[in-house]
Design a protein around this nucleic acid. Structure first.
Lengths: 214, 214
DNA sequence: GCGCCCATCCGGAGGAACCTTGATCGGACC
DNA sequence: GGTCCGATCAAGGTTCCTCCGGATGGGCGC
């Protein structure tokens, strides 16, 4: 336990940084702190820490911006651990896509956070228990559709028509895009409405919106 | 400056509480801390602090829930200062409605926070500069409409029709609700589409959704 | 092979809903 | 009295949606 990795803290709130620093104690060496995207990139490239503890939301951008900026500046060996109050899927995905090696929420204890920093410094990936399953799901499933059983009622062609229908395109426009006759579009549309048990395209739009298809 | 009000901290993140406590130093007396709604209400009623520093978002509810719970339990003289990373209008309104005497974001400095706590203890209302103007606006303006210049193009009757149209109601249904002829509805609808420069009701729906009218 | 089901494609007929255009009436304003 | 505008309604064309028909081609079981 004598190994103390070098760390830079990035968070726009002084109090959060003070709290993190206090809780980490002497288990890490804090080289510097930063409060916005530009400062963070500059000081990270200058000091080359082993790990960057990074808030997801910053006033001048996102944590992902910091990661991409550092990567562009040549800091390829620096590892990032996202530290956020948010466990919103979009936030997690964005920062992981950018290259973070871990994501923990601020509800973690100081000891656990220090453990996480050390493990990330050693090359591990660290996720809060609540997020681990989600991250696995999001990246193992290459299919963007979360397999909706009601969608299986529709044939592939009907699903294409359904998407355009829900977006408000006219039959004529759908026919032009799919290079088929208007009559064919009408047939597909009628089948879609019947299979999904909605009575017109307005209800279909709401149906699709609820499932985030549009 | 020898006056040090009694304070209870409510926040679900240990590190944030540690940071706040460290920054406040000896300018306040911290009686206790709590991490969720139930604990907070209990300990606040038990210890009766002068001020409660309250996070807006808690795992078991909201900061507003804590305030209403304490009020229901008889803690009428206790003053609340909301402390949050969020400056979302809904969050601010909810906690102020519940009875908070101030709202500051966590980007505040430790000294300023201590000042804010003292001022709230003395009966003042304290808001971060960025929020002060907003709070005034939100409560002085009794009109719920944020005065959209494009909406002024529509006559009152046309606005009624527009709302129903954007929600997907059929002409027949709109006519029944407004007790006018279908033909009249059609004319109003046509005027609405022309004035807002959209070509059909689907585009109107998106127009209204963007302005949060629906 | 042959029948069968189904997805995809296309057409006609018809009613409902949508949207445009033109018209009347009454109140406000000059 | 003339003009403008909002509210009302009607005529008529366009689009939407359903119901009917038919054609083709692929998969599947007998």
């Amino acid at each position: 336990m004598t190994y103390a990795p070098t760390v830079i803290l990035v968070d726009d709130h002084d109090m959060v940084r003070a709290g993190v620093a206090a809780q980490l104690g002497d288990r890490v060496q804090i080289l510097a702190e930063a409060g916005d995207v530009g400062d963070a990139i500059e000081v990270i490239l200058d000091r080359s820490p082993e790990v960057v503890l990074l808030d997801v939301h910053l006033p001048s951008g996102s944590g992902a911006d910091v990661i991409t900026g550092v990567r562009a500046g040549g800091g390829d060996e620096i590892r990032f651990l996202a530290l956020s109050v948010s466990d919103a899927p979009d936030d997690v995905i964005a920062v992981i896509r950018a290259g973070a090696r871990g994501y923990v929420t601020k509800s973690i204890s100081g000891d656990d956070l220090a453990d996480a920093v050390v493990r990330v410094a050693e090359g591990d990936a660290v996720f809060s228990p609540r997020l681990a399953g989600f991250v696995i799901d999001a990246f193992s499933a290459t299919l963007p559709t979360p397999e909706d059983p009601e969608l299986d009622l529709l044939s592939p062609r009907e699903q294409e028509v359904m998407r355009l229908l829900a977006r408000g395109y006219a039959y004529k426009e759908i026919a032009r895009r799919l290079t088929i006759s208007i009559k064919t579009v009408e047939t597909h549309a009628s089948n879609v409405l019947r299979k999904l048990q909605v009575s017109n395209r307005h209800e279909l739009t709401r149906w699709a919106a609820k499932r985030r298809i549009v």
